[in-house]
Structures are given as C-alpha cells and as structure tokens.
Simulated scan of single mutants.
Amino acid sequence: MSIERVYLSLTLERLWQFSLQYYSVREVKEACLALQNQYHGNVNLLLLLKWLDEQGAAIDDRDWPKVELCLGRSESLLSSFRELRRKLKRNLPDTLYRETLQFELQLEKQQQSDLVDCINGLTLGNANGESMALRYCRQLEGEHLYAVFSQSYSSDEPTDTL
C-alpha cells in the first residue's frame, strides 16, 4: 500500500499564527500546560501535529527520529530557561518577569522554526487513520487530554501569547 504524498506550504509565520490563535483558547492552553508539566510533552510539537492534522497530513513513523533530533537542539535550552524563570518569579519585579516571559516566547518561536525546517525536509503523507496529536498524547500517556485537542475552535478567537 503506497502513501500519497502531501504538499504543504508550512512557514514559521503560518505555524506561529496558528499556535497563537489556537493556544488562546483557555481549554487548549490548560491542556497544553498539563501536557508539558505533567506528561513532559512538547507544546510546540503538539501544536505542529494539530496543524498537520487540520491539513490532513501525517509524518511517517520512520521520520520520527528526525523530528525528535530537531527538538533536542532547542528543548534543553528552553526547559532550562523555563525552570529558571519559574524559580525567579517570586524575586523579580513584574517588568523584569514580563521580559523573561518575552524571551521564553522568542525561544519557543525559534523551536517552531526548527520544527518547520525539519518538517519541510520530510515527505509527508495523507493522514489515513488516527490523528497525529492523538498519537502523541497516547505516547506520553496523556491520551485523555486529546478530548480538548480534538475539538475545532473558531479562528475568530482573540490572539494571546503562548
């Protein structure tokens, strides 16, 4: 059985805008934070997978190691910074804390850039089965979170920050 190739126009800006809009939904934000904090998942990867699901595209199982390698480059830096920011939260003035949040957001965007470069170097196939986001949630043993990610949310929602 051959898999039909899917051609997508994935750019950093397209993924970033989708992510900001999708993450602005309160239930999605809460589920993303649970995925990150309780199941040690990567929110940027989940957002990418949700975008691919909505495009009807899938990453071949053989390409997962490439995606994981791509994430590895930025994940340790992002995780370390996020942990430091949390530790400093009580001791920083509000303005300085907001600056740390903005810097973390820049790191998130860089990670999405890495993911876009990676995905654009892969051959994507048609999604013929369960969603990529569901597979990821199941892999992390957080399958129940998928109930939130499976919902369609209006693109008229206000934009928020990640």
Rank of each mutant, 00 (worst) to 15 (best):
D117W: 00
C118T: 10
I119W: 15
H144V: 08
S113I: 09
V148L: 06
S152P: 01
L122R: 04
H144I: 00
Q111H: 13
S150A: 13
L134Y: 14
E130S: 13
S131V: 01
E130R: 11
L115K: 03
A127C: 14
Y153D: 08
L115I: 08
Y136L: 06
S131L: 14
M132F: 14
V148I: 12
G129R: 08
D114K: 03
S152R: 15
Q111I: 01
D117Q: 13
R138L: 06
R135H: 14
L140F: 03
G129K: 04
G125I: 14
A147S: 06
G142V: 02
D156C: 15
L115S: 06
N126H: 14
Y153V: 10
S155E: 15
I119N: 13
A147W: 09
Y136T: 00
C118S: 00
S150H: 14
A147P: 09
L122N: 01
G121W: 03
L115V: 02
A127G: 10
Q111N: 14
G125D: 11
L140A: 00
L145V: 10
L145E: 07
F149E: 04
D117I: 03
L124N: 09
I119Q: 13
D156N: 15
S154Y: 14
G121Q: 07
E141P: 08
Y136D: 07
S155R: 12
G121K: 05
G121F: 09
Y153G: 04
Q139M: 12
L145K: 01
S152D: 15
R135K: 11
S113N: 04
D114V: 07
A133G: 12
M132A: 15
A147G: 04
V116K: 11
Q110C: 10
G129F: 09
H144T: 06
M132R: 06
G125S: 09
Q111E: 14
L122G: 11
V148P: 01
T123D: 11
V116L: 04
A127F: 07
Q112A: 03
L115N: 09
E141Q: 12
L124I: 02
V148Y: 00
C137G: 14
Q151T: 14
Q111W: 07
A147I: 07
G142W: 02
K109D: 01
S150Q: 15
R135Q: 15
I119F: 13
A127V: 05
E143W: 04
S150G: 08
N128E: 15
N120P: 06
L134R: 10
K109R: 12
S154W: 07
Y136S: 11
G125H: 12
G129P: 02
L124A: 02
S155C: 13
D114E: 12
R135W: 01
E130C: 12
Q111F: 10
